Simulated scan of single mutants.
Amino acid sequence: MPDNAQLLLLDRDQAAALLQPDEVLAAVRESFRLHASGDGRIFPLVREALPAGVFGIKSGGVMTQDLLGMKAAGFWPGNRQYGADGHQATIMLFDPASGRPQCLIDGNAVTTARTAAAGALGLLALARPDSERLCVFGTGVQGAAHVDYALRVLPGLRRVRYLTSDGRRDPQFEARFAQRCDIAPGAGADAAVAASDIVITATTGRGALFSAQAVRAGTHLNCVGSDTRGKRELPEGMLALAHTWVDDLAQALSIGELQWAPQTPVQELGALLAADVPARHGIAADAITLFDMTGLALQDLSVARMLQRRALATGTGTHIAWPW
């Protein structure tokens, strides 16, 4: 057996520095294609409550591309009292021929970027191309990332209204986007939704954020926060009013918004992206569209592989001996 094997380590700052939005978008789009074609596999999800938080494992692989790996991630709210992120994620890539680990990556920035990129791809496929007004629930890491990517892929967006859990202004959030759009707090949940072309929900999923009646014809919704059994962001009856897409049907039924309305007719977004058709192809202009996002292991792995390649090309990261 070889005795010179090494394990590549990428810490938080190294991983974040290597993440380029265009490359992340390309990697996430590829992950959707692999999922739709069946070339990529996602393995059964682990998602369990612990005394201090929630722990999960998403894993999968693409054997034809020598890609195999997992992300161990979850949410530990107690971290916030120390000024640390409650969300924690670690990604590991393996050699599928031997099972040996190849790369260990801090997964927080990867999770944020790949989720926002998936949301952006949903916007490109399902939102009206003339959309100008966006409403976002949540101004945390995910909310900010989704607004960033939305502004990148839909240059026609002119106005952003945001809502926080406590109703207060978020000056830091406003400052981040002040040079790119008209940004201000929303004047109440229903009013902000009714005045928007796009609605993004990126909260902790404690309950319905607005009323279904507030959603106007032609609106698109990206729903991010429901990623565990018992979480929800949408009001009862919302899915019945919308044309709904998911990233993975089984996951959406288990941990997404679909857990609350399992009989809802849905399609997987990967099939739509693989068809490479114009935005809202075959969808009536006044139809409400919705993307229920639970996150694919293939998204994490495709982005992680991109980071591994960039790290090796640029000499980034730490190599440690990992002998057999």
Rank of each mutant, 00 (worst) to 15 (best):
A17C: 02
E236I: 07
D13Q: 14
M238N: 11
G53F: 08
G53L: 05
G317D: 15
P51V: 08
R161T: 15
A240D: 15
V160C: 07
S98F: 02
P2H: 04
A271V: 13
A214S: 15
Y162D: 01
Q259N: 07
S196E: 14
G107T: 00
Q65Y: 05
L68Y: 05
Q14V: 04
A26T: 10
Q213S: 15
A113G: 01
S131M: 02
R159P: 09
L104G: 03
A5S: 07
Q267A: 12
W324Y: 11
T228F: 03
F177E: 14
A52V: 13
G99I: 10
P278K: 12
E23W: 02
I91Y: 03
A192L: 06
D148V: 03
A192Y: 10
E23R: 04
G122V: 00
T111K: 00
L301I: 05
P323G: 02
A297N: 01
P44D: 12
G69F: 13
V199W: 02
H146R: 02
G107I: 00
A212Y: 10
A261D: 11
I198V: 14
D247W: 05
A144N: 06
P96R: 06
A287R: 13
L68W: 12
E23I: 05
P235N: 09
H35T: 13
H243T: 15
M238R: 04
W324D: 11
T204V: 09
A214W: 13
V199C: 06
H281I: 03
A144C: 12
L307C: 02
G140E: 03
R114C: 04
R152K: 10
G61L: 08
Q65T: 12
Y82I: 14
E23F: 02
R309L: 13
A250Y: 07
Q14W: 04
L272C: 00
R229Y: 12
A178G: 06
A297H: 01
D292S: 02
A118I: 04
I320M: 08
T228V: 13
N79V: 06
R159V: 11
L298C: 07
A150M: 04
S98Y: 00
A313R: 15
A304Y: 08
D22T: 10
L154R: 13
A52W: 15
Q308M: 12
P77K: 03
A97T: 00
D22I: 11
A297S: 08
V199H: 06
K231C: 09
A49I: 08
A285C: 11
T219R: 08
Y162F: 09
S131Y: 08
A242M: 07
